[in-house]
Amino acid sequence: MNPSSLRPDYRAAIGMITPSANLVVERVTSAILADFPEVSGHFSRTPVFGAKDLFPDDYDWDGMLGAARLLAQARPDVLVWNGSKGATLGFDVDRELCRRVTGETGIPATTSSLALEAALGSLHARRIAVVAPYVTGYQTKLVAGFEREGLEVVAHAHSGIADNLAYATVTDEAIAAMIRDVATARPDAILTWCTNFPAAYGVDALERELGIPILDSVTLAVWHGLHMIGHADTRGRRWGRLFSEPAS
């Protein structure tokens, strides 16, 4: 087959900003976009690493906007912060992030947290369970952040890891065990929350086993970016029920 025959008529592009110590976002994004050959993914990083957050109560605005400016030079159709911190800062902070990114670049923007808001609206889900790799203090902060958004956290589980890079080392078996544990509370949806947490690969099988939607923070960001440029559809269904849902 001539390679030129594989070229789509229109090539859309998603720009992803990811934490600097992240090993998961690029892998999962590229794997999902393999089902959408007309859409390419492009990446920029902002400093997030180690066990200590240098900006615990806000974003590193210079780092975030610098990463967005670099991506904007490639003129993607949408810019996405594929990071989970907005859940602790508040969704309004992510809305401000998107306002600033779009104001500087002229490109529409979204985040993992705003994608979650859209997905929960589509599912009419308010009772959630949360699975994450964090230490107890940060997990408590995360749960409180979701509750400030009007969500009821009925169960949660976490791995107790402090280092950002080490989040990616949690095994499939450990993630599945935590998901099954919180599923006993029968939430409307289960969140696997941290974009360096390799939960996306098991979502479809566990959803089918448990009968509960599972929303992964990395997958959410890709899904919402695809929706914003008019390319999300059931071709992504192997990544979970989310790809059967419209964005509200």
Results as ranks from 00 to 15, higher is better:
Met1Ala: 15
Asn2Asp: 14
Ser4Trp: 07
Arg7His: 04
Tyr10Met: 08
Ala12Tyr: 14
Ala13Pro: 01
Met16Glu: 08
Thr18Ser: 13
Pro19Glu: 12
Pro19Asn: 12
Ser20Arg: 01
Asn22Trp: 01
Leu23Glu: 15
Arg27Gly: 14
Val28Gly: 09
Val28Thr: 15
Thr29Cys: 13
Ala31Thr: 11
Phe36Pro: 13
Phe36Asn: 09
Glu38Tyr: 00
Ser40Pro: 00
Gly41Ser: 07
Phe43Arg: 00
Arg45Ser: 12
Thr46Asn: 09
Leu54His: 07
Leu54Gly: 10
Phe55Asp: 04
Phe55Gln: 07
Asp57Cys: 06
Asp57Lys: 04
Tyr59Val: 07
Tyr59Met: 00
Met64Ala: 11
Met64Arg: 09
Gly66Trp: 01
Arg69Val: 14
Ala74Ser: 15
Arg75Cys: 11
Arg75Val: 10
Arg75Leu: 08
Pro76Leu: 05
Val78Glu: 05
Val78Ile: 11
Val78Phe: 06
Leu79Tyr: 02
Trp81Leu: 14
Asn82Gly: 13
Leu89Arg: 06
Asp92Ser: 13
Val93Ser: 05
Val93Cys: 07
Glu96Thr: 12
Leu97Arg: 09
Thr102His: 04
Gly103Arg: 04
Glu104Lys: 05
Thr105Tyr: 05
Gly106Met: 02
Pro108Glu: 06
Thr110Phe: 03
Leu116Gly: 14
Leu116Arg: 01
Leu116Ile: 11
Glu117Thr: 02
Ala118Glu: 14
Leu123Glu: 04
Ala125Lys: 03
Arg127Ile: 07
Arg127Met: 06
Arg127Gly: 11
Val131Trp: 04
Val131Glu: 10
Val131Arg: 04
Val135Gly: 12
Gly137Ser: 13
Gln139Leu: 08
Thr140Asp: 08
Leu142Ser: 14
Val143Pro: 14
Val143Met: 05
Phe146Met: 12
Arg148Gln: 12
Arg148Asn: 12
Glu149Ser: 14
Glu149Gly: 15
Gly150Glu: 02
Gly150Ile: 01
Leu151Tyr: 15
Leu151Met: 07
Val153Ser: 08
His158Ala: 14
Ser159Lys: 10
Ile161Ser: 09
Ala162Pro: 08
Asp163Gly: 13
Asn164Trp: 03
Ala166Pro: 00
Val170Glu: 11
Ala174Val: 00
Ala176Phe: 08
Ala176Tyr: 08
Ala176Asn: 12
Ala177Phe: 06
Met178Ala: 15
Val182Cys: 08
Thr184Val: 10
Ala185Trp: 01
Arg186Pro: 06
Thr192Gln: 03
Trp193Lys: 03
Thr195Ser: 11
Thr195Ile: 07
Phe197Thr: 02
Pro198Asn: 12
Tyr201His: 14
Ala205Asp: 11
Ala205Asn: 10
Glu207Val: 03
Glu207Met: 07
Arg208Lys: 15
Glu209Arg: 05
Gly211Leu: 00
Ile212Glu: 08
Ile214His: 12
Val218His: 10
Thr219Trp: 05
Leu220Glu: 01
Gly225Leu: 06
Met228Gly: 09
Gly230Pro: 05
His231Asn: 12
Ala232Trp: 05
Ala232Ile: 03
Asp233Cys: 08
Arg235Val: 02
Arg235Asp: 13
Arg235Phe: 03
Leu242Cys: 10
Leu242Ile: 11
Phe243Asn: 10
Glu245Thr: 09
Glu245Ile: 05
Glu245Arg: 02
Glu245Trp: 05
Ala247Ile: 02
Ser248Pro: 15
